[in-house]
Design a binder for these strands. Sequence first.
DNA 1: GTGGCTGAGTGGATGAGCCACTGAACCAGT
DNA 2: ACTGGTTCAGTGGCTCATCCACTCAGCCAC
Lengths: 228, 228
Amino acid sequence: MEALPRETIVDVLEDRLRTDILDGLHPAGSYLPPERRLADGYGVTRTTLKHAFGRLAQAGLLETRHGVGTRVRDYARLGGADLLPMLVRHDSGWVREVFEVRRGVGALIAERAAERGTRPQRAELGALLAALPRAEGADAVQLADVEVHRALARATGNRVYVLLTNTLFNAYLPVRSLLQGPFTDPEAAHRRLAPVVEAVTAGDARRAREAADTYLRDTERIMLEGLA
Amino acid sequence: MEALPRETIVDVLEDRLRTDILDGLHPAGSYLPPERRLADGYGVTRTTLKHAFGRLAQAGLLETRHGVGTRVRDYARLGGADLLPMLVRHDSGWVREVFEVRRGVGALIAERAAERGTRPQRAELGALLAALPRAEGADAVQLADVEVHRALARATGNRVYVLLTNTLFNAYLPVRSLLQGPFTDPEAAHRRLAPVVEAVTAGDARRAREAADTYLRDTERIMLEGLA
DNA sequence: GTGGCTGAGTGGATGAGCCACTGAACCAGT
DNA sequence: ACTGGTTCAGTGGCTCATCCACTCAGCCAC
């Protein structure tokens, strides 16, 4: 089982605000109504509204100035990758673009991991890969797959690749139930991924890059078949 | 001039909490003291503390469960790239790793931009590049340089590259005053960057990738000289 | 054992109130 | 006319006191 979190008012409100913004109800650059009025409109306290504002501001969607107001940032132009989860949830058209980037970055990571992975890191990769076909259910297989990629990112020795990998995963893990195609058959998933780990373990950078590219292309194709 | 934002209590508190966490005062996985006690300890209201909590939770540093408590997430393992600005500010050791990734991703972007940039996008690139040597002061030159890179990301036709570029810039723009070495001479900055734009405009993907790699290597080297 | 109850401790949310800031309109002095 | 100061309405920042909702461990009846 898995403990699923309750949905607080702030959560709901944040979602609603985000939707309203991304739908264009409050266009980029425009000011939101004053907090008092907006809180009244949504039937919540100003305090609660401010909590939701705080999150959206942290995410880069809003920008508040004391004495002036709160306005919608031009997120498409200036926003960071941490907006992806909400953008993907709001419009699945982003998924394809996320995957393309994932492919490019994944290839870089495999290359670096092959060049610089330490012995224990390679051993961990092997263990995680071996655990994959033992997972039960497509969801578990997918998560086991994710763990292998996290380990690959760690093996680059560059912590930023780890964070970047997490960001890209965060972007589509919330909608992962729609993308389980590649993971319904644990054996097949294992076969696709194995060459990447093999090349990295062997320390062959060029082959690792190519294997990662192939793996990501295949996985992406199978995932998107499920969407179409 | 530039309007610099005031520092609110929540800002200060957030900074303090972040520092305490990143310094290991509250290790990953551990629970923070209860809100009432912590608020008392910092001399602020629980409401204010919760605002700061909200931001850090959104950033992926904290995780709150109703009725249980707030605990520090294992950000090094599970955090996203949006943590970078705070990590870099806290420990400049991250800068080198950010640059390495920036180099890899920058090369990907240049390659894609060369393949897929539209005519107006190429024109914009040329215009932004031409504006660079006209900027006054290292800071303005650096920001003009950033704008060229944003335009390059847009020219890939993939919005995720734009967000990713912003994320990486956000990581080191807050400390950019320490990294102005490459931008003290506008003419030199222009000369380094020009080959990238030229190759992209010519639609030569391979050359664009190599030019970007060279540019990023050079810029990185000059920047880090200033740090050492 | 098993299942339900209870109470202490925790975060969630409220609403009234006051403070601090911004910007535009106004007004005086030059 | 122009400049500079003052005022004021509107906005967000922050606090406080209070109650609600949830979790967990311990207890107890069955």
